[in-house]
Design a protein around this nucleic acid. Structure first.
Lengths: 153, 153
DNA sequence: TTCATATTGACACTATACATGTCAACTTGA
DNA sequence: TCAAGTTGACATGTATAGTGTCAATATGAA
């Protein structure tokens, strides 16, 4: 019963670390973006297109779990940057695919590898297993909190 | 060289989970606050006063790492709720201490214990050690990202 | 004791990151 | 072919926080 309380307390603190972690991470990402002409949200679009290939705006919105209308704005900005271009979508003529240009692909790859290098540096003295399990724990907790927050059955 | 990349990748994903985790957590906290008349930010004020005792607004701002002017607004709201009251501050006459009222103390204790119960439930099948280490990893990474983001030397 | 400097509370304004609502144009599928 | 759905565009709303400024006051060093 002692360790049960400790466990819940640790979990509670872990959950509440999400905000400071996010803020620190965003500040770093932003710093890393300096000079590229990208904003954090444009980076998010590039990353999704890099991970999952060409997609329509509504598909990107679904993946990011934010509203279509806002993603539309993000994507329009990104299109204007020249790192992304439209391609015909045979399944829907009004909703073209967005795809990375060569420039965009090279940029996002460079950004991500820079970020990974930073991660390698920051995590140098951390245990690989611990990190892998931390990821599992965080994913599990996030999932369950989501179900808790909006029970859809 | 293989595991080094895996490690960085896991860390990268862990860091990027911070936003979904935070959003899920906030939704849950908000749901748990329903009926209390508290908002998430009022809860934050109560929690700090509960953890660290009576403090002035600028002290709370320093602890939350958000701007004094915004914390002032949060605290004014919280004061209006009756869960917090002003007490004379011998060190500074214009800046009274804020302290929990009995009602406020009982409310925040009730809220936190409810949250801890939820954590215990969500973490039931997670390993205690893993959670403790996940917390350590997240704290370490947050610290280092902060130093990275704003190198002050 | 006095006075320059700092702190505090209050208020106004701005910015960001979304949500919401609406609409017309178009597409799809029955 | 036509009703129903999808998409892009735009306008507006809201929550969270940052910034700037000011007057009142407090503090601490001379």
């Amino acid at each position: 019963m002692y360790s049960v309380n400790m466990k819940a307390e640790h979990l509670h603190r872990l959950v509440w670390m999400s905000r400071p972690l996010m803020q620190a991470a965003e500040a770093c990402v932003e710093a890393g973006l300096a000079g590229t002409g990208l904003t954090v949200r444009m980076r998010a679009v590039l990353e999704i297109l890099h991970q999952s290939g060409e997609q329509t705006v509504p598909e990107i919105a679904a993946r990011l779990e934010i509203k279509r209308q806002y993603v539309q704005v993000m994507c329009n900005e990104t299109l204007a940057s020249g790192f992304v271009e439209q391609r015909p979508n045979p399944r829907h003529k009004r909703s073209p695919f967005l795809a990375l240009t060569d420039q965009g692909r090279s940029l996002i790859e460079q950004i991500i590898s820079k970020e990974l290098a930073l991660m390698a540096e920051l995590g140098a003295d951390l245990d690989s297993q611990d990190i892998a399990r931390a990821l599992d724990v965080v994913c599990a907790v996030t999932d369950r909190l989501r179900k808790q927050g909006s029970p859809e059955e």
